[in-house]
């Protein structure tokens, strides 16, 4: 393969993918806490796999432009759908893990400030009680 502009762009996208996946895995072992580990691992790994998908999309599109067969375009479209599925599902799962960890009562490490400390995350029941109380009072008056 000769070094045209498209080949250089594809190789740069591939290297970005490798670097970010490596950084995410490093952060999983360096950080001291569940929340910081979640931050490092989920963000960096999602970004790296996004760039892996971009690499495959660019590679397939280049081969489709050169050779003109439909199977290359097919590969690009399928990879794009995989990219969208990854983008929708991955941050939602990370948010669910962080919420479960906070509800289990795991404290952040000392360097981190907990903004939700003492906050009542289940606000449905007190609000319902207040509404009932006010309606009773108004009924009495």
């Amino acid at each position: 393969m000769t070094l045209t502009l498209a080949v250089v762009v594809i190789i740069i996208l591939l290297y970005i993918s490798w670097i970010f996946n490596g950084l995410g895995t490093m952060g999983l072992h360096i950080f001291p806490d569940v929340y910081t580990r979640l931050h490092a691992a989920t963000k960096c790994t999602t970004f790296g796999t996004m760039f892996m998908s971009f690499t495959v999309i660019a590679y397939s599109t280049r081969l489709y432009i050169i050779e003109g067969e439909a199977r290359f375009l097919n590969m690009a479209i399928h990879t794009f759908i995989a990219l969208i599925a990854l983008l929708v599902t991955n941050p939602t799962g990370a948010h669910a893990i962080a919420r479960a960890a906070h509800k289990m009562g795991i404290k952040p490490a000392e360097a981190v400030k907990d903004d939700l400390e003492g906050a009542d995350l289940q606000q449905k029941k007190p609000v319902m009680m207040k509404k009932k109380d006010t309606s009773n009072e108004e009924g009495d008056k």
Partner: peptide
């Protein structure tokens, strides 16, 4: 669970690479 989630994302990435 965080480790497992990271492993899942990396498996998806390696499947895409092997497919290409």
């Amino acid at each position: 669970v965080v480790g497992l989630d990271t492993i899942n994302t990396l498996v998806v990435g390696s499947m895409i690479a092997l497919g290409a």
